[in-house]
Amino acid sequence: MASPAVDDYLKTIYHHTEWQDARMTPSQLAAVLGLAPSSVTEMVQKLAAQGLVTHRPYGPVTLTATGERRAAAIIRRHRLIETWLVQEFGYSWDEVHDEAEVLEHTVSDRLLARIDERLGHPRFDPHGDAIPDADGRVDREPFLLLSAAPAGHRGRVLRVSDRDPDLLRALEVVGIAVGHVVEVRPATRVSVDGGEALTLPDGAAEAVWLSA
């Protein structure tokens, strides 16, 4: 079942548990992919038959070891392409996701290896998501979601969700980016790199992860 549709399912399931522990349900999978629950149920059954996921009725969907390796491979392609577009072609971080969605299914393994070499084998993409190595391994340090960080917590921005381009642009305006140091202040305010306290854009607290 080598197809972009299968890869999208596996990639979505993999991504769901990268930054939190709760497993993904079929209804959540349907919502993220924008598909009817009945269509998702049918595909999950096919993926299970292929040994790529495990699933019980009314339970979560979990990648098998085979499914996780395949998901890591396609995510590696996606994130290397995003990094390539930013570093080599001047794309901004809010522009690359959709481009990478198209290119990840068309770039050859040979070209991907050249891109990886050209970029110096990066470990993280422009949003701070870990790029799996050729064996599917990733390297992440302890983290917490900004909304869960207590007042006074000081941490480096490890990751910003790429789901909402408008939010990415708003965060860029206030100076929040991967690698910046944020100190959490009361009333949903933060200071960045020791600057004045500022008010977060709507939705930012649920889209930014800090070092723990």
Rank of each mutant, 00 (worst) to 15 (best):
P142E: 02
D166N: 13
R154H: 03
R154A: 07
L158C: 10
P132V: 06
R118Y: 07
R114Y: 09
D162C: 12
L145S: 12
A113H: 04
D109V: 02
A149T: 02
E95P: 04
S108C: 08
D94A: 14
D98V: 08
L103F: 06
A134I: 02
G120W: 01
I131M: 00
H97D: 13
D125Y: 08
D135N: 09
A100K: 02
A148D: 14
L158G: 15
P142I: 05
A100L: 05
R114N: 11
V160K: 11
P126Q: 07
G128Y: 02
R114C: 11
A100S: 12
P132G: 03
L158Q: 11
G128H: 05
F124H: 07
V102Q: 12
H105Q: 08
R140H: 04
H127E: 09
E117C: 04
V138C: 12
A148K: 05
R140S: 15
H121S: 14
A134M: 01
L145W: 13
P126D: 09
E95L: 01
P142T: 04
R118C: 12
S161F: 01
D94G: 14
R118I: 05
D133T: 01
G152I: 05
D139T: 12
V96F: 00
V107S: 01
D164N: 15
R163A: 15
G136E: 03
L111D: 15
R123L: 13
E117K: 09
H97C: 07
S161I: 06
T106E: 07
E104N: 04
P150R: 08
F124W: 01
H97L: 13
Q87I: 04
F89I: 06
S161G: 10
A113I: 00
P132Y: 00
V138Q: 10
P150I: 06
L119I: 04
D162A: 14
L145R: 15
S108A: 11
S147F: 06
Q87E: 15
R118S: 13
E117T: 11
D94L: 03
R156G: 11
R163N: 14
V102G: 07
R140W: 00
D125P: 08
Q87F: 02
F143H: 15
D116W: 00
L103W: 01
A149W: 01
V102A: 06
E117F: 03
H105V: 03
V102W: 05
G136N: 03
V102F: 00
R156W: 02
S108Y: 00
S147N: 12
R156F: 02
I115K: 01
P142C: 06
P132R: 07
A148C: 06
L112M: 07
I115L: 02
F89V: 10
G128F: 04
